[in-house]
Design a protein around this nucleic acid. Structure first.
Length: 297
RNA sequence: GGUGGAAUGGCCGAGAGGCGAGGCAAGGGACUGCAAAUCCCUCUACACGGGUUCAAAUCCCGUUUCCACCU
């Protein structure tokens, strides 16, 4: 049974292509977008509508409430279960999305040591009191290899490394596999590319449409559901800007412009991430997408 | 026409004789439980022409443009 991945930056047209592909190879779709997992976050995440899904089952989509946090570890487990379940029914899988880490976590043998809220809480408190330099110094002592890999200014990653060391009693780097071991060696990955200018135009268009379709109202409706309580959902592109607008910190026009800008920057980061994975076969706008994929399967 | 003020990198914006503020945008990059997150790097400007000075974005003179006010 096949596992086909469609990756690439936002607004490159992954979703609609994935439906076509699913039809062509008798597959079901698994979402690999960290924000589209949330129920109710539809307009702002440019989530594919039910009609557009054309009857193809979509998994890992609309599975989390906004007041819960999505994490890679959670996604990894869930997505793998779904993949194996679909395969066991004799169907293929198309995994689509722009969250590179999520895709990698599923396909490759990434293992995420547990997290402990108490440990983390203490570390955060210590960081506040002692400062980031002290935390980095501690990491340097406990795990020099990790300190080398983590930027001294990136508190979030420093704390996670310290957390893992404390929980497992082993250096953070000990948990990382030496060589690439792959969970789904037969997975085929495709990436959609578009030149910056075109992508930029598409992003602007898409964001304008979001606001016309009632993005602000969507956010307003999500707030009673706990949007502001969770850590991840409220930071989503556009959502954080709209929240700022609702709270009177940002004019509507500014929120729109900021969303466009932030989305463009995000697209760049996505390209950087995906460009590292040499297994990805890139498809440009000049090629017939569906055909190109079907040919190389 | 007169008087005064201003002119700084793609944009905003400090500096007021000698180490090229900073922010934003843009570009590049990192990435193993918040990843649409978090973080790193790069981009050498002072309107123009003269002058003073060892040294001028900073002082002086003129030119241009803009803004105020006056007639």
């Amino acid at each position: 049974m096949k596992l086909v991945v469609i990756a690439g930056a936002t607004a490159t047209g992954k979703s609609s292509l994935s439906v076509q592909l699913a039809h062509a190879i008798d597959a079901e779709i698994i979402n690999a977008d960290s924000m589209q997992v949330y129920r109710g976050m539809d307009i702002g995440t440019a989530k594919i509508s039910v009609e557009e899904r054309q009857g193809i089952p979509h998994h890992m989509l609309d599975v989390l409430d906004v007041n819960h946090d999505s994490t890679v570890a959670w996604y990894q487990v869930g997505a793998r279960e779904v993949i194996d379940e679909i395969h066991s029914r004799g169907k293929n899988v198309v995994m689509v999305g722009g969250t590179g880490l999520y895709i990698k976590a599923v396909i490759d043998e990434l293992n995420f040591p547990d997290t402990d809220p108490m440990v983390r809480h203490t570390l955060n408190k210590e960081a506040e009191e002692l400062g980031i330099d002290a935390m980095f110094a501690r990491l340097e002592k406990l795990d020099p290899a990790a300190a080398l890999a983590i930027d001294r200014a990136n508190l979030r990653r420093i704390i996670r490394a310290l957390e893992v060391i404390e929980i497992t009693g082993k250096p953070f780097t000990a948990n990382l596999p030496r060589e690439e071991s792959i969970r789904y060696p037969d997975a085929r990955q495709f990436g959609l590319v578009m030149d910056r200018e075109l992508l930029s135009e598409r992003i602007d268009e898409r964001v304008n449409k979001m606001f016309e379709q009632g993005f602000v109202e969507e956010v307003q409706k999500l707030i009673p559901g706990g949007l502001l309580q969770g850590r991840t959902a409220q930071r989503a592109l556009g959502y954080s800007q709209v929240i700022a607008h609702i709270q009177g910190e940002l004019l509507l026009d500014a929120a729109i412009e900021e969303t466009k800008r932030a989305t463009r920057q995000y697209a760049r980061r996505q390209e950087t991430w995906f460009s590292r994975d040499t297994r990805i076969k890139w498809i440009s706008t000049k090629q017939p997408r569906l055909e190109s994929i079907l040919e190389s399967l």
